[in-house]
Computed example of a mutant assay.
Amino acid sequence: MSSDPPGFELPLRLLLGFRVLIDRLHAELAHQGHPDVRPVHGFVLQAVGRDGTTAVELGRRLGVTKQAAAKHVDALERLGYLRRATDPDDARRKLLQLTDRGVDSLARSARIFDELRAEWAQTLGSERLTALEADLRTMTGTTPFRLDAPGWFGGG
């Protein structure tokens, strides 16, 4: 009889590690003045990016329908993280852009993730964490962040 855990535990542990980090991130973001930001909002803000995008392209990047993307855009616009602007190259087209509040939330998120990584390094040891990250890169490829997770999880 093997002492190895069942195979299904690996993806659940990876997802739980993700969840632990994301929950801690959002608790700290709330403490730093961004209490309304939800995990899916991070994907949306990243997909809009510093250069902005259209609603159609946003849906494509997130792997969701234009309608699902619009729902998140409406929420983030109400919360002051996104704005709609006229495309300077085509007045009929609207661009989605990050507001200063949106940029601030992303900058704070990056700093908080660095702090959380440092905590993991303190707990696990720097060498073990570096090895874990290297092993995950080996198994998952070179792209660390896929924006289409909301669509993959069934978000639209």
Rank of each mutant, 00 (worst) to 15 (best):
D36N: 09
T65A: 13
R137D: 00
G102K: 05
L21W: 03
G33W: 13
K71E: 07
T143A: 00
L129S: 01
G59T: 09
P150Q: 02
L62S: 08
L14A: 10
G49N: 11
A107H: 12
F113Y: 15
H31K: 14
G63I: 01
L129V: 06
L79T: 10
E127R: 07
G151T: 03
P6E: 15
F153A: 14
D89V: 06
R24G: 09
D135S: 00
A110K: 05
T65E: 09
L95T: 05
A70S: 12
A107Q: 11
S2C: 08
G52V: 06
L132S: 03
L132Y: 02
A131K: 03
A149P: 00
M139F: 11
V64W: 07
G102A: 06
R50D: 06
A68R: 14
V48D: 03
A149L: 13
E133C: 06
P11F: 15
R60S: 04
S3W: 07
D89K: 12
G59M: 07
L132A: 07
R84E: 04
H31S: 13
H31I: 08
P11D: 14
T86L: 11
E9I: 15
D4Y: 13
R111T: 08
G154L: 06
D90M: 08
A134F: 01
S105K: 04
L25D: 11
S109D: 03
Q32A: 08
G42I: 05
V20G: 07
G52Q: 10
E9V: 15
E57N: 15
E133W: 00
Q46Y: 08
E9K: 15
D74M: 09
G141W: 00
D90I: 07
F153L: 12
D51I: 14
F43P: 08
R24I: 11
R93M: 04
